[in-house]
Design a protein around this nucleic acid. Structure first.
Lengths: 218, 218
DNA sequence: AGGGTATACGTACGCTGTAAATATCAGGTT
DNA sequence: AACCTGATATTTACAGCGTACGTATACCCT
């Protein structure tokens, strides 16, 4: 029997399988044993290609960071930042495990570095100081990750949202929480579509930065 | 020997011990066995007072949410929102496990409800529509949680930050990441204090909302 | 043909949350 | 004083986790 009895394991194959598993069954389902099973291999074999589970988590984070469209420096910085933020948001929603993983660890991988480089060089070219670049970058990322991660705890479809709101109502007596009760009622009966709006806060931040570019302070 | 051989376990005592344990040794150290040990009790005894571990996590989140200073509706809404955000940020830093826990689950407890009620009623009294209240609240919270959670992956002290940056430099060849390399260098040698600034992004958002209050669009 | 090396496997350890059965004990009733 | 009852604490057990360690297999190179 010739070689290639089976395609050999590689770090790449392990990471891609990990992404697939996490995408399909959630991050909790990503255990070494289950991951190995999807590759028709025993758990310990994975350790020939990755250092440990943390290495896998680092790896899959960097893999999907690579899916984000990079902003291109030199042109319309505001449009570039908008594109970047929206793309990041979209990618993070496509891999629901990713946002939490990113914010709960320090991420150092080639794709992450490329992503940061593209972002801060765009801000620099827009005329921001180092300090402002740093803070603008941080403010945008805080919003992107914070928004995405919050969104993932909520029903996505408007009607699911409405019925979820209806479910909460009994916990929210009008006497104790008048405003919250009223708002929840409006969502429950469809009067107010409580759907979260990513661009709202994003534009607040971008507009604020815009004024800063126009009249820099420091 | 009289009664009171030992003070009896209560849900309250369990939760407070859980907060103390997580504060001191991190969320990973918060296991049922270790928590029980700090109360001089066996793990299974805890289940007489809490439903399961998730119940504990829900409980400690709501406990520390209660530490946040509530905004007071009716006055200067911007100042109230600033106070609220800063207090939340401070509380979350004092309990480093909290931010991640909050954003990774749906939180329904009396303190959380009170906190939300105070926030959205302040926004309503400022003249925002339901839709704008919802979005403003969401934008601020996204920023607060996102910023805090990101901050916690970084060294807090400026000199630690500088030496951490120095440690990263070898991973960031100037040819490949010119801007990131330069920025990291500036941080490493103390020229640019990369310390994150919570108020920067917060004020961008508040100013944006301010303009919205002045000339409401919808 | 033989040795070296890379890769895969099997076993085992200490940890996790918690179900189920058992033990302990305080308070109220007879 | 004796008994019962209900709440609380303990014990035991199970399946799953990450991974250290030792062994087996299969390939390449000389």
């Amino acid at each position: 029997m010739p070689t290639a009895r089976r395609s050999p394991l590689t770090r790449e194959r392990v990471l891609r399988a990990a992404v697939r598993l996490a995408d399909k069954h959630g991050l909790d389902a990503l255990s070494m044993r289950r991951l190995a099973a999807t590759l028709k291999v025993e758990a310990m074999s994975l350790y020939n290609h990755v250092a440990n589970k943390d290495d896998i988590l680092d790896g899959i984070v960097d893999l999907i960071i690579g899916e984000i469209t990079l902003p291109t420096p030199g042109g319309d910085w505001k449009a570039a930042m908008r594109t970047r933020a929206t793309s990041a948001h979209t990618v993070l929603l496509a891999h629901p495990w990713a946002a939490l993983l990113i914010v709960s660890r320090m991420n150092v991988g080639p794709n992450m570095f490329r992503y940061i480089e593209a972002t801060i060089s765009t801000l620099r070219q827009a005329g921001l100081s180092w300090a402002h670049t740093d803070r603008a970058w941080n403010a945008m990322d805080s919003y992107i990750y914070g928004f995405t991660v919050q969104l993932q705890n909520f029903p996505v479809e408007p009607d699911e949202y409405a019925s979820a709101a209806a479910g909460f109502l009994p916990m929210l007596p009008a006497a104790q929480y008048p405003v919250l009760h009223e708002m929840t009622t409006l969502v429950a009966n469809g009067t107010h579509d409580g759907t979260h709006d990513f661009s709202f806060g994003l534009e607040l931040i971008l507009d604020g930065l815009d004024r800063m570019v126009a009249r820099p302070r420091s």
